[in-house]
Design a protein around this nucleic acid. Structure first.
Lengths: 118, 118
DNA sequence: CTGTATCCATTGGGATACTG
DNA sequence: CAGTATCCCAATGGATACAG
C-alpha cells in the first residue's frame, strides 16, 4: 500500500465525481458511447430537475470530463459526450460499481423476508 | 464495459466515502495499519474540528467501515481502526489516488513557473 | 483525552415558472 | 429543445465553549 495521506490526491478525483447525479450522468454517457442530447439524458434520469441537470453538466464540462456540442439548428440541439480525459475516470467508477454491487447484494441478503403480517 | 446505469450501485460506495475528511481519515487508518487514537487522528488532520472529526468517525463506524474501541482508563483512550469490511474499499481509494496523482501532476505541469515579478 | 452542545454561514439540490 | 431565473429548504461543516 503506497498511499501517503499527507500527499493525498484522492480528493481531486472525488471532487469531480461527487454530485448527486454525476455518477449516473457519466455512466450513461459511457454506456451509450456516443453523443447524447440533453433531453435524452433527462429522460434517462427523470428524477433530476432541468436546473440541476444543467448545473452538473456544466461542472463536468468545466473539468473537461465531458464535451458539449451545440448545433445551431431550430429546434436547438445540444449533445454531450465523454472526453478521452473523462474516460480515464472509468477505473474509479468501475471499482465503485463493483464494490456497490457486492455491498448492495449483501444488504439485500441481510434483509428479512417480507412475510410479516401488516 | 458492463455498467448498467439503470441498476447503478456506484452511489452506495460514494455515500460512504463522501465527506470532506473521510478519505483522509480512511487513508490514515489504512496507512498506519494499527489502531489510532482520536488525538493522533486529529494531529494527522489538524484542519478538522473536533466536532466534525467525531461526526465523520461516527458515520464511518455506523457503516461498519471502521471500528471504535473504548478503553475504560483515565485519561480515556479511544482507538479507531479499519474493519476488514472497510478494507474492501481500498481498490476504490487506490483507483482514486492513482488518478488523482496523475491528474494533479498534469495540473502542476500546466502551471506557469512562478517567476513573475509581483 | 475524548468528546457534546450551540450557533452560524455556505452550499447543494428541489419546485416551479419563464425564454430564445 | 435546451435551457435561465427565483425562491426555498435541509444538510454539511466550521468556531467556540463546555463536560466527564
Amino acid at each position: 500500500m503506497k498511499i501517503e495521506p499527507n500527499y493525498c490526491e484522492v480528493g481531486s478525483a472525488l471532487d469531480i465525481i461527487v454530485g448527486k447525479w454525476k455518477p449516473l450522468i457519466l455512466l450513461t454517457l459511457i454506456e451509450k458511447d456516443e453523443p447524447v442530447r440533453f433531453n435524452q439524458l433527462h429522460k434517462s434520469i427523470p428524477e433530476i430537475s432541468q436546473k440541476v441537470l444543467t448545473k452538473q453538466l456544466r461542472e463536468l464540462e468545466s473539468e473537461n470530463i465531458i464535451m458539449r456540442q451545440v448545433f445551431p439548428e431550430v429546434p436547438p440541439r445540444v449533445e454531450y459526450s465523454m472526453t478521452s480525459y473523462g474516460l480515464t475516470l472509468f477505473p474509479i467508477l468501475d471499482a465503485m460499481h463493483k464494490w456497490g454491487e457486492k455491498h448492495q447484494q449483501l444488504k439485500l441478503k441481510d434483509e428479512k423476508p417480507h412475510n410479516n403480517i401488516m
